[in-house]
Structures are given as structure tokens and as C-alpha cells.
């Protein structure tokens, strides 16, 4: 556990009478690609929201690089090096694609001409260069996913949390995100991925945590988990 970048320890979250997350624990090591899977309502996004500080945990603790980040403000958590994307892309819609990247680059002190140069280079790499002067609102849902992915990636995070990054994306955009996620991992960035895309997930994740009704059903290597009768039952029913 010494090398754990992220350690989630018995976190719980309830909304009224509904327990959305119940005593969930897992950890991710440096450069690991960890998947969070489970049916709808399993609590995956709620866990992301607690790690990134958007929701307060009812109990339990979250450690990042050994520091307790439980219930800290999202701004503070982002500055510690945790970046995330959202299932419904949260791009800055009345700003151009270039501005979307430039504003993120401010967090790593890249400004002015260098920011413009890097923003153009990044957009070129993901095939959005031709649209750099368009507003983000003019992009398709898949393109906006890609944009928020690269916007989070340019902040040089140590932990990248991707919430359904492949949902609604074209095969080309998925390939691009898969390649870049793997590259991030190789450079030492820990990646947490929520995905329903059973085809793309094995290309990204080595290990998965399976959630059901807010609790951890099982965790382990993807190929082992796939054969687990409990997982098959949770996904397909008896």
C-alpha cells in the first residue's frame, strides 16, 4: 500500500434514505489504470464526486499521496493534481476550443503565446485543430468528451478520473482517448475510468473494481472479474 496514490477507505454517502455508497474501499497505485464498473445506480459517479470534493462523504477517508483529502474543496483537490471529466461533458461552451485549453494551461503557468502554441498542438493531436476558433457549443457530444479529456490532461495531473469517457464518442475519438490514457499511465499518471463500454475498457484497464448497489462486489484483474459468477449475475441477472 506504500505506493498507493489513491486510497479510498470505507467511504459512505447517503441521499435522504438512500445509501448511494456503502463502505467502499479500494486503492490505486502510481501509473495504474483502474476501472470502476457496475450497473446504473451502483455509485460509481458518486465515488468520483466524493474523491473530487463535489460531494461530502458521510464517513470514511480518502487519501491522495498519503494526504487526507476527505471533504476538501474541489479547487484544493484539483490543485493537488487530481483532474476529472464528467459523464455529461462540462466544456466552457461560449469559449472557443483554444480558449478551453488555454484556461486549463493557466493552472500549470503556461500563458500567452506559449499557451496558444500548446493549445493548438494538443487540438491538432486529437483532430480538433480545424475547429479551434469555434465555440465548444458547436461540437458534437463525442467531440466535447474529447475536449474535456484533453483539457483535464493538459493540467499535468497525477490522478486522472474519467467518467464514461467513451459514451457517445466516435470510434476515432475513442481510439484517441484510449491511446492518450495509456500514454498518461505510462508517464506515471494514475487513471480511474468509469465505463460501460465493454469493448474499450479492456484496452485501457488492467484491474477493475465492480460495484453493485453502492458497495464493492469484487475487485481484481478484468479477465478474472468477467468470469466471476457474482458479476455475471449482477449484470445479467440469474
Amino acid at each position: 500500500m506504500v505506493d498507493s496514490v489513491l486510497r479510498v477507505d470505507g467511504i459512505q454517502k447517503s441521499f435522504g434514505g438512500l445509501r448511494a455508497v456503502n463502505d467502499v474501499s479500494f486503492s490505486a497505485s502510481r501509473g495504474e489504470l483502474l476501472g470502476l464498473i457496475g450497473p446504473n445506480g451502483a455509485g460509481k459517479t458518486t465515488i468520483f464526486n466524493m474523491v473530487s470534493g463535489i460531494y461530502r462523504t458521510d464517513s470514511g477517508q480518502i487519501f491522495f499521496d498519503g494526504t487526507d483529502i476527505t471533504n476538501r474543496h474541489p479547487t484544493r483537490i484539483a490543485r493537488w493534481g487530481i483532474a476529472r471529466t464528467f459523464q455529461v461533458p462540462r466544456t466552457f461552451n461560449n469559449m472557443t476550443l483554444e480558449e478551453n485549453i488555454r484556461v486549463a494551461l493557466l493552472q500549470v503557468n503556461i500563458v500567452d503565446a506559449e499557451a496558444t502554441r500548446q493549445a493548438c498542438a494538443v487540438l491538432d493531436e486529437v483532430g480538433l485543430y480545424a475547429k479551434r476558433h469555434q465555440n465548444a457549443s458547436e461540437l458534437s457530444g463525442g467531440e466535447r468528451q474529447l475536449l474535456q479529456f484533453v483539457r483535464a490532461a493538459v493540467t499535468r495531473p497525477r490522478l486522472m478520473m474519467l467518467d464514461e469517457p467513451f459514451a457517445g464518442s466516435s470510434p476515432g475519438a475513442i481510439d484517441c482517448m484510449v491511446e492518450r490514457t495509456v500514454a498518461l499511465s505510462r508517464s506515471g499518471v494514475t487513471c480511474l475510468v468509469i465505463s460501460h463500454d465493454i469493448v474499450s475498457l479492456p484496452r485501457v484497464c488492467e484491474r477493475v473494481v465492480v460495484l453493485l448497489d453502492g458497495a464493492v462486489l469484487t475487485q481484481g484483474k478484468l479477465e478474472d472479474v468477467r468470469e466471476d459468477p457474482k458479476v455475471i449475475e449482477a449484470y445479467l441477472g440469474e
Binding site: S52, I54, H73, P74, T75, I77, A78, R79, A83, R84, F86, R90, T91, F92, N93, N94, M95, E99, R102, V103, A104, L106, Q107, V111, Q148, R151, A152, T155
Partner: peptide
């Protein structure tokens, strides 16, 4: 300026700006 760029980001999506590390 850079400040204006952050203003626009916050205007468009306060939460999105917050998780990028900007103190809204």
C-alpha cells in the same frame, strides 16, 4: 487578460472551473 479567461470559464460552468482548480 488571463483573469478574463477565467471569468468566462466560471461564467460558462462554475463547477467545471472549480474542478480545474480555480477559486470561483
Amino acid at each position: 487578460s488571463r483573469i478574463g479567461l477565467v471569468f468566462k470559464a466560471i461564467r460558462d460552468d462554475q463547477l467545471g472551473a472549480s474542478v480545474l482548480g480555480f477559486n470561483v
